[in-house]
Amino acid sequence: MKHKTFLWFILPSAVAMLLFIALPVVSVLLQSVFAPHEQVIREVEKCDVFGCKKSTTVDVEATAALSEGAPLGRFVGTAIYTDRNHLALSEIGAIWSSSKGPGDFLDQIFNLPFYGALAFTLTYTALVTPFAILLGFCIALAVNAIPRLLRGPAIFFSLLPMIVTPLVGALILFWMVDARGILGVALQSLAGDPDLSVKASTPLMWAMLIVYGVWSSCPFAFVVYYAGLQTVPQDTLESAMIDGATRWQRLRYVIIPHLLPLTTFLVLIKIMDNFRVFEPIVSFNGGAHAQSLSYFIYADLTATNKLLSSAAATSVLTILGVIVLLSPVIVRTRRSFARAAS
């Protein structure tokens, strides 16, 4: 295709992305290396309806004078990236020299917010991604095998975990797994422990978040695979059958290779989505037991003292994390592109 034709075709999409994603990305990069100016603090008397007391306030004029001519703020370089609430480099150094052994060292590292969150985020991503994709694949195979008339309802019901807004879906599930909810009681009788509470223990909370993650994201894999299954070349399948291939062999040598590009796509998307997990943590009030990088971004942006630079730095670290995780897939894709081009 000619460059010019290509440009016209891609233009609307590119403009939308440049304006609403690329520009914000640039501003996020800037924001992560610039922090707010030094605030001039003044001691004052504050009186409200309940009485007066000594307090402090920001001297707006003096602070504005300080920030004259530097609208971006104060350049701090990588200071935000390396501070205690992010990569915590100097804290790690201190822990390294003071720790009493590898166990203690790891304990102290995971007590740092970033690494604690990273541990959960990586566990979540590593478990939810393969299980959701595998489960989605099995559902697609099963739905594809039932009579056509039943497929519509089967598709709809399989999509339900994805359709019902997490806002309320998670609220209801959160209630169902309560120690007195229907699923919580079922779990208690299964485990034979009447005091079992999913919400009170860290391992169970992790397990619940991961199960919820698989449950809510496998419909996506299902739909993609289901669409893919419809395009499996029938003549190849039939000739394989004539050659006496077993069902398993057909699955292994015809269907799975055909769905491989879709699998690559699913792995890319799911790793990315799972690495950014935060909605279930918020809906399940799980912040005491599990945190993720995106949860910190959410906390920074919704706090009274908004930490925009911190949120920007965490966002950049999230993107870098995604790139690192995806790099094997990206390298593979690049090779296949090179092959296609040659």
Binding site: N305, L307, S309, S310
Partner: peptide, 8 residues
Amino acid sequence: AAAKEGGF
């Protein structure tokens, strides 16, 4: 860490 970022 947060207060340093905020310039306080």
